[in-house]
Nucleic acid binder design. Structure first.
Length: 482
RNA sequence: GGGGUCGUGGCCUAGCUUGGUUUAUGGCACUGGCUUCGGGCGCCAGAGUCCUUAAAAGGCUGGAGGUCGUGGGUUCAAAUCCCACCGACCCCA
C-alpha cells in the first residue's frame, strides 16, 4: 500500500499542520462537541504531566506548597475586587440551580482563583510568622472566551498552575515576582522554548494587579502566545474593603499583606512545545520532557528472532535501570511502521537492533531531532545517551531561538515597519506609551499589539515614538497575539 | 464583532446541482489467516452507524423500525430542498 502522506508543512500552513498532528498523533479529540472544550488523550497527557512535574518541582524547591481549592466560587466573593470583576464578569460560567432548585447564592466556575483562595488566606494568616505564604494549585480554569477557540491555544477550559503568595511588605512581594521570572526561565530552558519577557503596559494589566509581567513565545505562524504571567497585586485584594488579609507584625501593629500571583499556562506550554519543535514527521520532544525517552525496535530476521529479541530486551532493561524511560516495541508491525509511529510521538531516541547489531556488538541510535543514525558499541550506549540528552536539548533550543531572534526586528518609523512587516514578527520600537497610539497601531496593522517593555534588560528609547513622532518614553515590543 | 465555506459509518471521501433500485461509494484504520520484518510490504477472507423486537453472558441466523451533526418543515417519497440550533474551518475587523 501507498505510505500515508507525511504531515502538512508546518511553515506553509501552521494551522493545518497543528490540526493534523493533534489528530494523527492522537493527542486531543475535538469531537466532544462543546465549543472550546476538548478531550486530552493519553499521548498528550503523558506530556502534560511531565510539564506539570517540571514546573511543580521548581515551585516546591522555592518553598511553594501544593493545595487544592474548589472549582466553584460564591458570586459574592468573586465580586469583591472591583477591577477583577470588571475584567472577568463577562466570561464566567455561572451555576444558579442544583437538584432542581435555585441556589441561595449563585456560584461561578473559577476563571482564576484569587477570589477562592484569598478568603482562606484571611483566615490562615495571623502573624508575620505565617509569612510568606506560598501556595499553588494545578487545575483547570474556565473562561467563556468570545474569540475563536482553538484546541490548546485558546479553550474555554484550560490547564495551568496558579501560585498565590502573601508577604509582609512590597519588597518581598516584588522579589517573589523576580523568583517567578527565574522559575519560568528555568522551566522554559528545559522545554527548549524561546521567550520574550515583558512588563505589560498599564492598560494591559491583569484585572486587579498593580504590575503585570508576561512571557510570550512565538509560534510558526508569526503570532506570539502568552504562556505565563506573574503579577504584583499590591494590597488590592488584601485591603479592608476586599478580603482584609491582615497579620500582626513584630512591632505589634496590624498590617495588610502584599500579594503576588503567578500562572504558567500548561495547555499553552504544551502547545508551544508541539508547535515550535515539531516537524513534518510529528512531535519532537526534549529528552527530559519526553514521557518516553527511548524506544527500542528489534528488526527480526528469519532464524535469528531469538537472539535479536534477547539483545533488545537486555538493552531495554539496562537503559531502564540507568534511569531512562525506555520501552521495547515488540509488536508484530514492520520496523518502518514503528519508526513512523514513534517519530510521530516525538520519542527523542530510537535504538534499532537487528542481525548486524547482534553479530558485531553495537546498536544503531537514531536521533529524532536530527533524524540521523549512529552506530554505538554496546558498552558505550549509556554514556552515549547521557551525552545526547543535553545535545538534543541544545539543538532544539538553538533552532528555536534562532527562529525567534531572526523574527525580532528593530524599527524606527511607521514606514520602516510597513516595509519590514513580512519578516518582523516581533517588532522592537521606541514608543510614546499612549493607549490611543497602541489602539491605532492595532487597527492599522492588522492586529499588531504592544506587548510591553523588556524586563531582563534596560532599554532607552530614541527621542521619538515610531508611530506618532511624539516624545518616546520606552522601548516596546509589538506582535500579533493569540 | 462582520463575512464566507462546511458537517455522510472510527477517520477521509463519493452521492446533493436535476428528491425515487443506495441493502449509502471508495480508501485508510479494524478482525482472522498466510507471508514477512533495515522506513509504514504483499496476498486471502471478514466485519463494519445505532436502536428495538430481546430475556444472565457469549455466538449464529432471520425479520422489523430508525439512521447521513441535532430538531423541525415541505413531499407519495429527503443524505439530497427549506428553517432553526449545535459544531468545525477560512478570511476580515
Amino acid at each position: 500500500m501507498v505510505a500515508e502522506a507525511p504531515l502538512k508543512k508546518k511553515n506553509e500552513n501552521f494551522s493545518e499542520w497543528l490540526d493534523d498532528v493533534l489528530q494523527r498523533a492522537e493527542l486531543v479529540d475535538i469531537r466532544y462537541n462543546v465549543k472550546g472544550f476538548i478531550v486530552y488523550r493519553p499521548n498528550i497527557m503523558f506530556i502534560v504531566k511531565r510539564v506539570y512535574e517540571i514546573i511543580e518541582n521548581l515551585l516546591i524547591e522555592k518553598g511553594h506548597k501544593p493545595a487544592l481549592f474548589p472549582i466553584v466560587i460564591p458570586i459574592s466573593s468573586f465580586r469583591k475586587e472591583s477591577e477583577h470583576i470588571k475584567g472577568f464578569e463577562r466570561e464566567v460560567f455561572k451555576i444558579n440551580e442544583a437538584g432542581g432548585e435555585e441556589l441561595e447564592e449563585e456560584l461561578i466556575l473559577r476563571p482564576t482563583s484569587e477570589t477562592a483562595i484569598y478568603p482562606m488566606f484571611a483566615l490562615w494568616i495571623r502573624s508575620y510568622k505565617d509569612l510568606p505564604m506560598k501556595i499553588f494549585q494545578s487545575v483547570s480554569v474556565y473562561r467563556h472566551e468570545t474569540k475563536a477557540t482553538r484546541p490548546l491555544l485558546r479553550g474555554r477550559e484550560f490547564l495551568w498552575i496558579e501560585a498565590h503568595c502573601a508577604f509582609i511588605d512590597e519588597e518581598s512581594a516584588r522579589n517573589q515576582v523576580k523568583e517567578d521570572l527565574e522559575i519560568t526561565k528555568k522551566a522554559f530552558h528545559e522545554f527548549g522554548l524561546p521567550f520574550l519577557m515583558t512588563e505589560r503596559e498599564p492598560y494591559d494589566r491583569f484585572y486587579g494587579a498593580v504590575d503585570s509581567y508576561a512571557f510570550d513565545t512565538l509560534l510558526p505562524d508569526g503570532r506570539v502566545l502568552q504562556v505565563a504571567t506573574t503579577h504584583y497585586l499590591g494590597q488590592n485584594f488584601s485591603n479592608a474593603n476586599v478580603f482584609d488579609i491582615k497579620f500582626t507584625d513584630k512591632d505589634g501593629t496590624r498590617k495588610n499583606v502584599h500579594q503576588t500571583c503567578y500562572g504558567p499556562g500548561v495547555s499553552r506550554i504544551v502547545a508551544a512545545i508541539i508547535s515550535i519543535h515539531g516537524d513534518e514527521y510529528g512531535l519532537v520532544l526534549p529528552f527530559d520532557v519526553a514521557p518516553f525517552q527511548i524506544i527500542v525496535i528489534p528488526i527480526l530476521k528469519a532464524g535469528k528472532e531469538d537472539v535479536i529479541m534477547e539483545k533488545s530486551r537486555i538493552i531495554t532493561q539496562n537503559l531502564s535501570k540507568a534511569g531512562f524511560r525506555t520501552i521495547l516495541d515488540d509488536s508484530d508491525k514492520r520496523p518502518g511502521e514503528k519508526y513512523y509511529k514513534w517519530e510521530m510521538l516525538g520519542v527523542p531516541i530510537r535504538i534499532e537492533i537487528g542481525d548486524e547489531e547482534v553479530k558485531k556488538g553495537f546498536v544503531t541510535i537514531f536521533r529524532r531531532d536530527l533524524r540521523s543514525r549512529n552506530k554505538v558499541k554496546d558498552e558505550d550506549v549509556i554514556d552515549n545517551i547521557l551525552n545526547l540528552k543535553s545535545l538534543i536539548l541544545k539543538e532544539l533550543e538553538k533552532r528555536a531561538w534562532d527562529t525567534f531572534n531572526s523574527s525580532m526586528i528593530s524599527i524606527n518609523s511607521k514606514e520602516e515597519l510597513m516595509e519590514k512587516r513580512e519578516r518582523a514578527k516581533i517588532v522592537r520600537a521606541s514608543f510614546c506609551g499612549r493607549k490611543e497610539c497602541a489602539d491605532e497601531i492595532k487597527a492599522e496593522t492588522e492586529g499588531l499589539e504592544v506587548r510591553g517593555r523588556r524586563i531582563d534588560i534596560k532599554e532607552t528609547p530614541s527621542e521619538k515614538c515610531f508611530w506618532c513622532g511624539k516624545e518616546a518614553s520606552r522601548v516596546v515590543y509589538l506582535a500579533k497575539a493569540y
